Amino acid sequence: MVLSAVSTTFAATAKPLGTDGNVAVKNECRQRNSKRQQGLETNLKNLVTDRTLTQDQANKIKAVITKAKDAKKAN
Rank of each mutant, 00 (worst) to 15 (best):
I65V: 13
N27S: 12
K67N: 13
I61E: 01
T66K: 04
S7T: 13
V2K: 13
T8V: 15
D20R: 12
R36Y: 06
K72Y: 15
I61A: 01
N43Q: 04
R32Y: 09
L44Q: 00
K15W: 05
M1A: 14
L53T: 02
L47R: 03
K45F: 13
L40G: 00
K73E: 09
K15S: 03
T8C: 11
T52W: 03
A14L: 10
D56V: 02
A24S: 06
P16R: 15
T66G: 06
L17F: 07
L44T: 04
V64G: 00
S34F: 07
A74M: 15
T42H: 06
K60R: 14
K73C: 05
L44C: 01
V64Q: 07
A24D: 04
A63Y: 02
G21A: 14
A24G: 10
T54D: 05
K45N: 13
T52G: 03
D56N: 06
A24L: 11
A68H: 01
R30A: 11
E28P: 04
V23T: 14
E41S: 10
R30Y: 11
T66N: 04
N75L: 14
I61T: 00
A63H: 08
N27F: 02
K67R: 07
A58N: 02
Q38N: 12
A63I: 04
A63K: 03
K15E: 07
L17E: 13
F10T: 05
G18N: 12
Q31D: 07
K35F: 08
A11E: 14
Q31T: 06
N22T: 13
K73Y: 02
A71G: 11
T9V: 04
N46T: 14
D20W: 05
A24K: 05
R36E: 06
N59I: 02
N59K: 11
V23L: 15
V25L: 12
A58V: 03
A5Q: 00
S34R: 13
V6T: 04
E41V: 09
R36G: 02
S34G: 10
V25C: 09
T8S: 08
R36V: 04
N75I: 13
L47T: 00
G21Q: 06
K62L: 06
G39V: 05
D20H: 11
A68V: 03
L44Y: 03
V64S: 02
N33M: 12
V64E: 12
V2F: 09
D56R: 01
V64A: 03
K67I: 05
N59Q: 09
V2W: 05
A12P: 01
V64F: 04
K73R: 10
M1L: 07
D20M: 04
S34M: 09
T42A: 11
T42R: 00
K73G: 07
A71I: 04
K73V: 02
L40I: 11
V6I: 08
G18S: 12
N22H: 07
A71D: 15
N43F: 10
K60A: 12
D56G: 05
R32L: 12
A11M: 15
V48Y: 05
T49V: 14
S34Q: 08
Q55I: 03
L44A: 00
P16A: 15
Q31L: 13
V25P: 01
N43G: 04
E41W: 02
V25N: 11
A5L: 05
L53V: 00
Q57E: 07
T13R: 14
K35I: 03
K69W: 06
K67H: 12
K72L: 13
A5Y: 07
A74H: 07
L47Q: 02
A12F: 08
